[in-house]
Amino acid sequence: MPMPAARTIDVDGIGTRYYEAGCGETIVFIYGGSFGTSDSASSAHTWNLNLLPLASRFRVIAFDKIGQGFTDNPGDDDYTMAAVVRHAGAFLRALQLPPVHLVGHSRGGYAAARLTLAHHDLVRSLTLVNSGTLSPGVGTNEVVLARPPFPKGSAECVRWVYRNYSFNPAAVTDAWVAAVLEVLALPKYRESIERVEGARLGATLFLPALAREKRETLQWINEGRLQRPVQIIWGSEDRTAILQRGLDLFHLLARHDRRVQFHAFGQAGHFPFREHPARFNALLGRFVAAHAA
């Protein structure tokens, strides 16, 4: 399914690629993954099965996070989740959006929650999808996806990674793989790989800082600071972020707000919005409508 036309906006000096369509309540999608990974590469294309179908009823926006997709890399080697969250907030302000319905997947779920905690005025509701990064408990990404048996950056490697994320291998289409390879081939993305993997900023900067901030984020959630309607959607067969982690996150959030819901999709892995897009879009659309301005 095609994406809406690409646009670019300057966000605090960072050229930022985004895609926008439709009108009405505004839904902003934040995908997962990180900059500088050589075995896979996320971009706004991740949401291509959701944007246009939802655009018939809503204003939908997906953007490339700092250092990912077609958005510029961070300056001063600031390859941190804090930079991702700062950039996401600045993007919402740059577009002068009304309070939006944020949808965050995986690491994007963490970014969406942290952004909400820091800027409640920007967010009307939150949908969190298979976010092992945000959930308490032990993640199994590093186990399931350890050392792909194909050369990094190859189509075979990309396909292997996303098939291991998914319940149905057929969900990993050639178009999805091609979109990932296009990003992996960008000179600016090659540069981020050199910094994050080559210079080891992933291990020495990104992960330790994320661990510190995650502790703070969970503490804030535990204190009831999120204060926005939240739905959690989880693919039950995700081996990298198992169902129990989603339930643990639900129970953490549910203590503080009655408007917290948990939804599990059967026969879906880490990307339920790609494996069952019609069901995902229906549930998201109804949630957004229920929490519209």
């Binding site: 039950s236 009655r258 408007r259 819901q261 939804h263 599990a264 059967g266 026969q267």
Partner: peptide, 20 residues
């Protein structure tokens, strides 16, 4: 959840919802 998982094992369109 147990009922959901029993049914989801064979029926591809199965969902579970917890309302707070």
């Amino acid at each position: 959840l147990a009922l959901y998982q029993i049914i989801a094992a064979r029926q591809p369109v199965t969902q579970f919802h917890a309302l707070n």
